[in-house]
């Protein structure tokens, strides 16, 4: 019979990440609905605003982040749904590693799903809503990554919290949006600055704020996550 290896943390994180990606590639439970919803949201914005004759460029930074977060909740809310059927969450807690590995594994897989989604949904929004992309590419990508990381950090934590309530994952946006307000402000302001709306020199400051927000909430989540996981 094989021997048990060393107690660690990264082996567990990578195992969990592998499990999440393998599950998703088999079922497409999270990604497909998110992608379809992304198309729907852009279409709805198009009907609701563009056809009404509203100029979209000034409000575009807000639109893009609100829609990204709304679409994101669809997938991130299911972070722990797959662990319920056979109580695998209890199984994950029994693994010989600090339980924060569960948070980090889920956070990384959520980040991968969200990035893949944004690679499609963000260009789609520019194209279908007829807003010209004038931002420098690298800083813009940085804003997208940082804004998404903050969302995923808070979303993954509160998704774990929401699954233990009577309301379940429906509660996630209710819990998360107030906490995400600084991230929303930062991401929207940085995007506006990069698109030449408002002060064009502001974006480095907002990127700094987003980075600080991300670091803070990943750190807080690592500390408190264990308390959420107790049965």
């Amino acid at each position: 019979m094989g021997a048990a290896g060393a107690v660690g943390w990264w082996p567990q994180v990578s195992a969990l990440l592998w499990k999440e990606l393998r599950s998703e590639s088999r079922t497409h439970d999270s990604f497909t609905p998110m992608l379809v919803f992304a198309f729907t949201v852009v279409t709805v914005f198009g009907f609701g605003l563009k056809l009404a004759g509203v100029s979209l460029r000034p409000v575009f930074p807000g639109l893009i982040w609100i829609s990204t977060y709304f679409i994101g909740f669809l997938g991130i809310g299911r972070s722990f749904a797959g662990e319920k059927a056979q109580d695998t969450l209890a199984g994950l807690r029994l693994v010989p590693a600090d339980p924060s590995y569960i948070y980090v594994g889920k956070l990384l897989s959520n980040l991968l799903f969200l990035s893949a989604l944004e690679a499609v949904s963000i260009p789609l929004q520019f194209a279908l809503l007829g807003v010209e992309f004038t931002a420098p590419l690298l800083p813009f990508a940085g804003v997208v990554i940082l804004g998404t990381t903050g969302f995923a950090a808070v979303g993954t934590l509160l998704s774990g919290l929401a699954t233990h309530t009577r309301a379940g994952e429906i509660l996630l946006p209710v819990l998360a949006f107030p906490v995400l307000i600084p991230a929303i402000i930062g991401a929207v302001q940085a995007t506006a600055s990069l698109l030449g709306l408002g002060n064009a020199l502001d974006w480095p400051k907002w990127i700094g704020m987003l980075a600080a927000y991300d670091v803070l909430f990943v750190a807080v989540s690592l500390v408190v996550f264990d308390f959420i996981m107790e049965s």
Binding site: L157, L158, L161, L175, P178, V179, F217, V224, F227, E230
Partner: peptide, 11 residues
Amino acid sequence: ARLSAVFGIVA
């Protein structure tokens, strides 16, 4: 108590 304590800290 546990879950609301966590949210109280995050908030």
